[in-house]
Simulated assay, not measured.
Amino acid sequence: MKTALIIRHVPHEGVAGYRQPIEEAGYHVNRIDVTDPEFSCLDLREPDLLIMMGGPMGVYEQDRYPWIACQMRRLSLRLAADRPTLGVCFGAQMMAGALGAEVYPGPAKEVGFHPVQVHEHVADSPLSHVREVPVLHWHGDTFTRPDNVEILASTALYPHQAFRRGKTQLALQFHAEMGEDPRFDAWIDQWPEAVVEAGGCPKALRRTHDELGPGAVAAGRAMIADWLRGLN
């Protein structure tokens, strides 16, 4: 059976809605936290699919989080080997950094549900499934464009919302996996100031999550399923 490994940078940012299409594609899913003592010993080239999720830290905070540099070195080897890799939010920023891009704080926090502008000129983009669908955004960092990638989507604040490198590597700033997972409450409880800084209201965002979340997750699952089919 094919293996998929989820790297979780904080406990409340898991694979959520993306687990279903990954398992349906025939992967046996394992998970490891960066705090696990075994994490530093893993060869990240080994899993058939690597999924790196989000987190509140920045790629540039390596003095504060020494494991970031360790993970980046091993991730670079995986990407150079063209191994299937999915990065979400911080995971996407890790991919960009491992491909030589600069990761840095963005112009403003982007928090809430709204669509991304899917680039029409990109052929066979799995992001066609999220076109015009409000999906969750919760980030404040961005990155320069890595070499040899296709930018798949943008927003007004963040022109690099998603990219792919060939068929095997997909990076997503936004969170189309979130919309039905109760861990969303932990996001708001821990970072209400991020919602306010982005011009929102925590209570209103909970209501929007309940209203728009299921549609966002359905679109996100279709996107991931489409991308995984392209790996075969």
Rank of each mutant, 00 (worst) to 15 (best):
Val10Gly: 12
Val10Ile: 15
Val10Leu: 14
Val10Cys: 10
Pro11His: 12
Pro11Tyr: 04
Pro11Glu: 06
His12Ser: 10
His12Glu: 09
His12Phe: 15
Glu13Asn: 00
Glu13Trp: 09
Glu13Ala: 12
Glu13Thr: 03
Glu13Val: 02
Gly14Glu: 13
Gly14Arg: 04
Gly14Met: 08
Val15His: 06
Gly17Thr: 13
Gly17Arg: 12
Tyr18Thr: 07
Tyr18Ala: 12
Tyr18Cys: 06
Tyr18Glu: 07
Arg19Lys: 14
Arg19Asp: 15
Arg19Val: 15
Arg19Ala: 15
Arg19Ser: 14
Pro21Cys: 13
Pro21Lys: 13
Pro21Asp: 12
Pro21Glu: 05
Ile22Met: 10
Glu23Phe: 02
Glu24Val: 11
Ala25Glu: 10
Ala25Leu: 14
Ala25Met: 13
Gly26Tyr: 13
Gly26Asn: 13
Tyr27Leu: 09
His28Gln: 14
His28Ala: 15
His28Asp: 15
His28Arg: 15
Val29Asn: 02
Val29Gln: 02
Asn30Phe: 04
Arg31Asp: 06
Arg31Leu: 08
Ile32Pro: 07
Asp33Tyr: 08
Asp33Gly: 08
Asp33Ala: 11
Asp33Phe: 06
Asp33Pro: 01
Asp33His: 08
Val34Asn: 03
Asp36Cys: 05
Asp36Tyr: 04
Pro37Trp: 01
Glu38Trp: 12
Glu38Phe: 13
Glu38Tyr: 13
Phe39Thr: 10
Phe39Tyr: 09
Phe39Met: 07
Phe39Gly: 05
Phe39Leu: 07
Leu42Arg: 08
Leu42Pro: 03
Leu42Cys: 02
Asp43Ala: 00
Asp43Glu: 00
Leu44Val: 01
Leu44Gln: 00
Arg45Gln: 01
Glu46Cys: 06
Glu46Arg: 11
Glu46Lys: 08
Pro47Asp: 02
Asp48Arg: 09
Asp48Met: 09
Leu49Gly: 11
Leu49Ile: 03
Leu49Tyr: 02
Leu49Phe: 00
Leu50Trp: 05
Ile51Met: 11
Ile51Trp: 05
Met53Phe: 03
Gly54Gln: 00
Gly54Phe: 00
Gly55Tyr: 03
Gly55Gln: 04
Pro56Glu: 08
Pro56Asp: 08
Pro56Tyr: 06
Met57Asn: 10
Gly58Trp: 04
Val59Thr: 06
Tyr60Asp: 11
